[in-house]
Amino acid sequence: MAKYTAFLALLICLFLVAATEIQMVEGKYCWKKSGKWNVACKYSYKCSYHCKHYYGAKYGICKKYKPWGHKYYWAKYACYCYSPCHY
């Protein structure tokens, strides 16, 4: 019985050392303005569906930007797609 206890304790110690050596990957997302979105972005859920369907992105949101020549407040929002960054 003592052999099994010592073996089990050694196995647990080995597992704990290995678990601390594993580095956590940070979940950073990179964004890109959708080139296929041709209208002003009013609803983020529609933008998110668009990004998932056309680009395979994780999600999409309507985000404010500074357009040239637009006088309406809702025209200042564009669809931006977010997906995991690849370094």
Rank of each mutant, 00 (worst) to 15 (best):
M24V: 11
Y59Q: 00
C81D: 02
G60W: 01
T5P: 01
L11Y: 11
G69T: 03
Y45A: 06
S83L: 07
S34V: 11
S44P: 05
C13V: 14
K3E: 12
Y73W: 15
G69S: 06
M24L: 13
M24Q: 12
T20Y: 02
K33L: 14
K46F: 11
S83C: 08
T5Q: 07
K46H: 13
Y55G: 01
V17T: 06
K71D: 09
W74C: 03
Y73F: 15
I12M: 08
Y73A: 09
G27F: 15
C79F: 02
H50K: 02
C13E: 03
K42Y: 13
A9T: 15
K3F: 12
K3T: 13
Y55I: 07
L10F: 15
S48P: 11
H70W: 07
Y55C: 03
A2W: 01
G60M: 03
C79E: 02
V17R: 01
S34H: 02
A19M: 08
Q23P: 00
G56P: 00
K52D: 04
G60L: 03
A2S: 12
K36F: 09
F15W: 13
C62N: 00
V39N: 07
A9S: 11
S34F: 00
L16H: 09
Y29S: 06
A19D: 05
I61P: 03
F15V: 10
C47I: 03
Y49H: 08
A75D: 15
E26G: 05
T5G: 01
M24W: 05
C30Q: 07
V17C: 06
G35E: 05
A9D: 03
Y77I: 04
Q23F: 13
F15A: 04
E26R: 05
S44V: 03
I12Q: 04
Y45D: 13
Y77N: 08
N38P: 09
Y43C: 01
Y72D: 09
Y87Q: 02
L8C: 07
Y29C: 00
L14T: 13
K66E: 09
C41H: 01
H53S: 10
Y82Q: 05
W31A: 11
L8H: 04
A40C: 14
W74H: 12
K64S: 08
G60H: 00
K42E: 15
E21Q: 13
Y55L: 07
W74Q: 06
K28L: 11
C51T: 02
Y65C: 02
S44G: 14
